[in-house]
Amino acid sequence: MDDGRIREVYSVSYPRLVTQMVALCGNRAEAEDLVQEAFMTALTHAREFEGVANKEAWLRTVALNRLRKQWRRAAVVRRVMPRIARESGPQLGAEATPDHIAIVTALGQVSQAMRETFVLFYVADLPVSQIAAELEVPEGTVKARLSRCRVQLAGLLSDPEGAEHA
């Protein structure tokens, strides 16, 4: 694959992929690292990447797999060394609005499977069939996860004080 084609894929896909990874991990710097690592993987596997029909989906899968690996490592560290201090809340940067921070924080409280499905559907704007293919689950599972996630997020994002004043 020529350098110009990689640059074209990068300029089109990078911002969307970073946004999707931020929604998953809650940390902009980490999201950027994940996406950059996915592009480095594409460069080192140029022949394979060249033959891929949906290059953005391939890159997203690589970034998501790296994120899952980080989560597994973090779980092991928490079990082995429970006194290690963890970051408190998402690190989104100064440009993040309070609503954005609330949504990312709420997404951090739902299961990993629901969070991934939610982000692919609402942030990546992928159809249910493509999400099912990327996550290797039945379409019914994708729909069920989306439904359960919406219910959980509604509970996490509801404003009980605002409801009393309305």
Rank of each mutant, 00 (worst) to 15 (best):
M1G: 14
G4E: 14
E8R: 04
E8T: 11
V9E: 09
S11L: 03
V12K: 03
V12E: 05
S13V: 00
Y14M: 07
L17T: 02
V18A: 03
L24K: 00
G26P: 05
N27Y: 10
N27Q: 06
E30M: 09
E32Y: 00
D33R: 10
F39K: 00
A42E: 01
A46P: 00
A46M: 09
R47A: 15
E50A: 15
G51M: 07
G51S: 07
N54Y: 08
L59R: 01
L59P: 03
R60M: 14
T61H: 11
V62H: 00
A63P: 05
N65W: 02
L67A: 07
K69L: 10
R72L: 11
A75S: 12
R78Y: 00
R79C: 11
P82A: 08
P82V: 04
P82W: 12
I84G: 02
I84D: 01
E87S: 10
G89E: 04
P90F: 02
P90C: 11
P90E: 06
L92H: 08
L92M: 04
G93H: 07
E95H: 10
A96M: 09
H100W: 13
G108Y: 03
S111D: 12
S111W: 00
Q112C: 02
M114T: 01
E116K: 01
T117L: 01
V119D: 06
V119S: 07
L120V: 01
V123P: 08
A124G: 13
P127L: 05
P127Q: 12
V128T: 15
S129F: 03
Q130D: 15
Q130G: 06
A133R: 13
E134L: 14
L135M: 15
L135N: 02
E139Q: 14
E139K: 15
G140S: 15
G140I: 09
G140E: 13
K143G: 03
A144L: 13
A144Y: 11
R145L: 04
R148Y: 10
C149K: 02
V151W: 06
Q152D: 11
A154T: 12
A154I: 00
G155Q: 10
G155N: 15
G162A: 15
E164M: 07
H165D: 08
